[in-house]
Amino acid sequence: MSFWEITFYLAQGFGVTLLLFVLTLLFALPLGLVFAFGAMTKFKPLRWLTRGFVYIIRGTPLLLQLMIVVYLPGLAFNYPLPKWGIFGGNTDAAYFFGALVGFVINYACYFSEIYRGGIENIPRGQYEAGQVLGMTRSQVFFKVILKQVFKNVLAPISNEVVTLVKDTALARSISVLEIFFCAEQVLSREMIIWPLFYTGAFYLIFNSLLTFLFGKMEKRMARYR
């Protein structure tokens, strides 16, 4: 395989990486807010359930969680691993979906802790100022609190997002043909090792782009406290 053939092949894999990345964020960012509310609710059983779940997810390897999501249902209900059909190069969609579920749950838990910190950091006076002006609870939350939370959490969230880009490589362990797996295939079929290292460039360029975007956002919000 020539350099360009390999680049093209890896880029295809990186497409799967990006899809996993984007979909994970799309679901995990709002789900994290739901978990954060669960962890802060006055209803104690739900609160402890949520906190316990977040505790377990944060305390165990993502790799293990991916295995559980993909293999446990099949083992528990005693049916072979599902075949949903090929997608994104050579991956079975069922595995991709399993990886997505694992990533979304894992990242939602991390995000929820960040959100919780961000929400608990807002002084009570902000809620009271809104209430005294006759706003409803939801108006206070969405119009007064949320934007401040957003500013509070932007830096820690952006760290997690950059980590997520790199973590997607773990999907390789459950047969998702993302860029890293592609490079390994080149290695085993063609006995060429440098594509493995070449993948680093893809991650690095994409993360630079993200860092740039987050920097822009941070700058835009720097105008207010």
């Binding site: 009271e128 100022a129 809104g130 005294v132 002006l133 119009k143 007064v144 500013k151």
Partner: peptide, 26 residues
């Protein structure tokens, strides 16, 4: 609450809004 207004010791302005937005939000 609408019968009363309250000015706090610590102002409690909404930091993400401009002066005009603070006044017009409610």
């Amino acid at each position: 609450r609408l019968h009363f207004g309250l000015v706090f010791q610590s102002f409690n302005l909404f930091p993400q809004y401009t002066v005009r937005q603070n006044v017009t939000l409610a």
